[in-house]
Design a protein around this nucleic acid. Structure first.
Lengths: 146, 146
DNA sequence: ATATAAATTGCGACTCAATCTCAATATATG
DNA sequence: CATATATTGAGATTGAGTCGCAATTTATAT
């Protein structure tokens, strides 16, 4: 499997775009993070790497990473769009707690079989899967009943 | 099964809120629509019913309907938050086409068994299920290859 | 009916995430 | 190294969504 840098470089080349210093910084942060993040958090982290980084660049790089299949928009748990890197990650279900904001992930493998069959039936070619369940986690569910 | 009006009225009463003319208009439109919609579309439709309807009222009523379990936020296919009524509707998967914007719905019943088991295992009490698959519908998938 | 208290409303100002413009700068290629 | 093209930061702009407030509507008790 290609590493994420190779994927991004090849994607950029295919479009006549350049693998710049700033894009490299952003890519590294995205794949160094193992949680969901929003553009502002990404900007803050990138800013620690270099002063020469603007919000505009971050906002412009995010869609490129998405189109390259490296990043995808995730559950929106705040006012801001949130993202997570997906390359090399098994598909999963997000369980979003409305009380504490926790996002638990579980495997999607069992569901995939049903999904593939369905996709075939309706002739849909899937790029991204977003499976979110909203409710209360075990901690918050019990607090509710106190 | 209670009708959606009863559910809303009881929800409002339980909170010491009132079932007003404007809230009734909005509720009726929401359950008259059988597609996804955003706040602006809802406002336009409500405005046709009465001149005495502001965006603020629409924006303030939407979260009430969500909390009452009548409405839920859906796939965001534009810049605006989109919604769909859910009361009395079987759970479904959304297949969102990135090219033409079509949203196809299919049944979620087969997946539910797996999901319930998983919820039990992690102790999660689910309120809403959002299962979206993003990709290309059969029409747009074939255009791509021309 | 009428009075009273409380919730609701429209208006328009406001917030803030996200986008756009444009001149200056960085990058790839011959 | 020269040229063409892509990228960048700064700050202006957009636009969905929220908020404050005075006027109005609604529910309840009298």
């Amino acid at each position: 499997m290609k590493d994420h840098q190779t994927v991004f470089v090849e994607f950029l080349q295919g479009r006549g775009l350049k693998y710049t210093r700033n894009r490299k910084i952003i890519l590294d942060i995205v794949f160094g993070l193992h949680e969901h993040f929003d553009a502002e958090q990404l900007y803050d982290l990138a800013r620690k790497e270099t002063r020469a980084m603007s919000r505009a660049t971050v906002y412009r790089t995010i869609p490129l990473l998405c189109e390259a299949g490296l990043l995808q928009q995730s559950v929106r748990s705040s006012a801001r769009d949130t993202f997570e890197h997906i390359y090399g990650h098994p598909k999963h279900i997000h369980w979003v707690c409305t009380r504490c904001g926790a996002v638990i992930e579980t495997d999607l493998a069992e569901v995939m079989a049903v999904l593939k069959q369905e996709a075939k039936r309706i002739g849909f070619s899937a790029d991204e899967i977003k499976f979110n369940v909203v409710g209360k986690c075990w901690k918050c569910g019990s607090i509710e009943n106190e």
